[in-house]
Write a protein that binds this DNA or RNA. Structure first.
Length: 285
DNA sequence: CCCACGACCTGTGGGC
DNA sequence: TGCCCACAGGTCGTGG
């Protein structure tokens, strides 16, 4: 599920049930996700008050009143489900229409208000840990991250500096979290399409004016996806029963062989760095 | 340092 | 129906 917009959507969904709540119970059903969970993981969570729920790049970061922060990355298939106490659902909470396979529910949290939050992750590429809040910025997960694409430090000058001299193609370069933090395979394809930049072009060989456009399209595509509630590629419904069905229509991602929305030439799929890239060879140069 | 590639793990969908 | 392969939203470690 998760690129930046999806993680942000999860953050917004979880914040109302977590922020200001005390964790009455925590359970780790296995000792590891992608990496080993820290020593006494559940015990260190139990009794802690969640001060806030933040996002940095694709990480969720929850500072606790114990001085530690719970840090979670959803990997490829991680998802949180809120099982709100019956009758207490509020707007902003959500569940997935297709219930996750319970055999892959690895972490369960219960708040002092009676809400239950489950972390499910079949592929187990996700990870969680506890880091002293004061040490977050220096931690290996965060120290080398580039700027937030929706923040003020992400602009054309940043990209021209980071791209200077790079022979690597721009697609792979934009996936490098040290250059911009939070982009993933889908939104890189979409932003390059909107910028008319070929994914095969060397990052160091993009004119300044096009980098300006690229920063704009990156922001736009992320903001639109966040507004749409994150593109989970699956339907989800809001707890209050509103028709929450969401189908984000990508322009190129996953559309091999379909006509380019601009010029009708077929969208092409290529492999770069072992991952699929979708683009229009006529529009993107 | 830069870059390409395999590894991690499970599920799903297409082709035969 | 069953089997096998390719592929999936991300990162990390290794080796050139």
């Amino acid at each position: 599920m998760p690129e930046l917009p999806e993680v942000e959507t999860v953050r917004r969904g979880l914040a109302p049930v977590l922020e200001g709540r005390r964790l009455k119970r925590a359970q780790a059903r296995r000792p590891d996700l992608r990496f080993a969970l820290p020593e006494r993981f559940a015990a260190r969570l139990e009794g802690a008050k969640v001060l806030k729920l933040d996002r940095r790049a694709k990480y969720l970061v929850a500072p606790l009143d114990t001085g530690e922060s719970l840090v979670a990355h959803l990997g490829m298939s991680g998802r949180f489900t809120i099982l709100a106490k019956r009758g207490t659902e509020r707007p902003g909470e959500f569940y997935y229409a297709d219930a996750p396979d319970p055999t892959h529910t690895h972490v369960v949290l219960e708040t002092d208000r009676g809400d239950r939050i489950e972390y499910n992750d079949p592929r187990r590429f996700g990870y969680m840990t506890l880091i002293p809040t004061d040490d977050l910025e220096a931690h290996a997960y965060f120290a080398s991250l580039g700027p937030e694409p929706l923040g003020n430090a992400f602009h054309a000058e940043h990209l021209s500096g980071a791209f200077a001299g790079k022979k690597q193609n721009v697609k792979a370069t934009l996936l490098d979290q040290r250059i911009v933090a939070g982009l993933g395979n889908i939104y890189v394809c979409e932003a390059l399409f909107r910028s008319s930049i070929s994914p095969k072009r060397a990052a160091g060989r993009i004119a300044a004016a096009r980098l300006e456009l690229l920063t704009t399209t990156v922001r736009d595509v992320l903001n639109e996806a966040i507004e749409a509630g994150g593109s989970t590629l699956r339907d989800y419904a809001t707890v209050d029963g509103a028709l929450g069905y969401f189908q984000h229509r990508f322009k190129v991602y996953g559309r091999e062989g379909e006509p380019c929305p601009t010029c009708a030439a077929p969208i092409v799929r290529i492999v770069q760095g072992g991952r699929s890239t979708f683009y229009c060879p006529k529009c993107q140069r």
